[in-house]
Design a protein around this nucleic acid. Structure first.
Lengths: 111, 111
DNA sequence: GACAAACATCGACGAATGTCGATGTAGCAG
DNA sequence: CTGCTACATCGACATTCGTCGATGTTTGTC
């Protein structure tokens, strides 16, 4: 059986905000996703990965963001838990990849 | 000339996150908008107004959200400053209306 | 085995946020 | 002018968040 984690469903989420009033559970889920996008550093990290169109090494993110390694690790964990990126550890390096389906799901929620 | 306020431009914002890495200024602007959507109460308030398709009285929002009047007023100010709703005071009542162009702008930013 | 490198976790700190009671302000009704 | 109503602002509080140095863990190299 599929293991239940704390991460959100990559695709499904909530009905569009303009369709009907969100119920409390849907609002909670959506809010958590948007909270992942509510920090400029995280937005730049995500944008850097998403625009690359390919895998990005975590080591690049530290230099690119200008933050310390623990801080970047913290932000990437939030993006990962929000389902916005995937993480793939190979050897010493960790490679991140954007999850376009998740971005599309959030776009749908704003419809 | 148009008065410059603290509110954001209703339409224009940032290039899509998948197009190229956001610069710091764009990331700051976008993050502030998503921060307005990062609270479940605000999402329900906005969804209630947006799905109404018409004006909504502030008095309805208090009962609907289950929060105190000052708290609702605080949240509505954030939504207003984010350009997601307009405010129209007529007599004693304040009427809110959703700004679909702003929601569309955020959807575009997630493209 | 010992050592180094990449990343995660921990602990602590200041700053920002959500919340509400108390109070201020603007607009009606008498 | 007096009161009442709807909403905004203020002050205070607990909680959450962003940050980084120190430390832990995993992996590869020798």
């Amino acid at each position: 059986m599929a293991r239940r984690t704390l991460t959100v469903d990559p695709v499904a989420c909530c009905s569009p905000v303009r369709a009907e009033t969100l119920d409390e559970a849907a609002a909670e889920t959506l809010a958590r996703s948007f909270a992942a996008l509510s920090d400029p550093i995280r937005l730049r990290l995500l944008s850097h990965i998403a625009s690359a169109g390919d895998e990005v090494c975590a080591c690049d993110l530290v230099t690119m963001s200008g933050r310390s390694q623990p801080t970047v690790s913290h932000h990437m964990k939030l993006l990962f838990d929000a389902g916005l990126v995937t993480r793939d550890k190979r050897g010493l390096w960790v490679w991140y990849r954007a999850v376009p389906e998740r971005l599309d799901a959030l776009r749908t929620a704003l419809a």
